[in-house]
């Protein structure tokens, strides 16, 4: 039973990171129709930026997190204006995919050049030994991740539903032409959405680096997992991304614990294929946010 509690705690922690990643990807994929193969690289860049601020410069964790968010936003805006804006005119799904694959190779190898390939550890802002919480056995570091992820998701949700910018974003995705006629700067909204997705990934990267080691290639696995979650949850769906993320985290934690750890990643991909074929709109019904 002790293991069960531990798997549950680990699974939930991982699931929260997956949910954060998936929210960023589901917006970019579901709304902009960009299958962003560089999504994981924003997560990696976020982790390394925060590491640079907190561990190399010795500043506070909050400053590190802020630097990661700002860095991801700047990078995201640059990528959208510099690369994706031109590609939108082709109306071809392949072009942005190829461009983001190139971008992911570029960012990965730049990170190797800047920070070297040796895995790094960033400390958690909280410390303490493991504690029992109901049936779960977990650590303060994991609880910190869960709380921080929940706050980030809540803020993102409020941004999308309660602010004018969020309203413009949702309007643009429903009908870009009509929004443009209503005076919405559609180009700016696309850049904003991409930057928003990048920032969510960066937060995920900062949080995961408080418990796991970071490497310049950590983004590749994260991208693949984000795809799994987005498809599990349904394109463009906020609640789907959260539920899908938690589900994948738990399945992986229990699967690695009780079944084969070697095929851990393969199970996720098999689930992805089955869902794509049987329920292409995701496990959790029609994407709500698109229809709102």
């Amino acid at each position: 039973m002790a293991e069960l509690g531990q798997y549950l705690g680990n699974g939930l922690t991982l699931g929260c990171i997956y949910a954060l990643m998936a929210i960023g990807l589901t917006l970019v994929f579901g709304y902009m129709n960009v299958v962003n193969f560089a999504h994981g690289e924003f997560y990696m860049v976020g982790a390394y930026l925060a590491f640079t601020i907190t561990d190399i410069l010795g500043l506070s964790f909050v400053l590190g997190l802020l630097a990661a968010i700002v860095g991801a936003i700047v990078l995201g805006v640059l990528v959208d204006i510099g690369i994706l804006r031109k590609l939108r005119q082709y109306d071809d799904i392949a072009m942005p995919i190829l461009a983001t694959i190139g971008l992911s190779i570029l960012l990965q190898n730049l990170a190797i050049l800047i920070w070297n390939p040796v895995p790094k550890t960033a400390g958690s802002p909280v410390s303490g030994s493991s504690i029992d919480l109901l049936v779960m056995r977990t650590t303060p570091q994991n609880i910190f991740i869960v709380v921080a992820a929940a706050v980030s998701v809540l803020l993102a949700f409020l941004f999308m539903t309660r602010t004018r910018a969020g309203l413009k974003m949702r309007a643009t995705f429903q009908d870009p032409m009509a929004s443009w006629l209503m005076g919405v700067n559609v180009r700016r909204i696309y850049a904003m959405t991409f930057a928003f997705g990048a920032a969510m990934a960066a937060i995920g990267g900062v949080l995961i680096s408080t418990v796991f080691q970071m490497t310049p290639t950590m983004g590749a696995v994260a991208t693949a997992k984000s795809f799994v979650v987005v498809i599990l949850g349904g394109l463009g769906s906020f609640p789907g991304a959260i539920l899908g993320g938690l589900l994948l985290g738990l399945v992986e934690s229990f699967g690695a614990g009780y079944l084969s750890a070697d095929y851990e990643d393969a199970f996720g991909l098999l689930v992805l294929l089955v869902v794509l074929l049987l329920r292409p709109r995701g496990l959790f019904g029609a994407p709500k946010a698109v229809q709102e």
């Binding site: 031109k86 590609l87 461009a99 694959i101 190139g102 971008l103 190779i105 570029l106 960012l107 190898n109």
Partner: peptide, 13 residues
């Protein structure tokens, strides 16, 4: 690999 990635982005763009 940096040049590889850059070439791919620039080609598509």
């Amino acid at each position: 690999l940096i040049i590889f990635g850059l070439v791919l982005v620039l080609l598509v763009r």
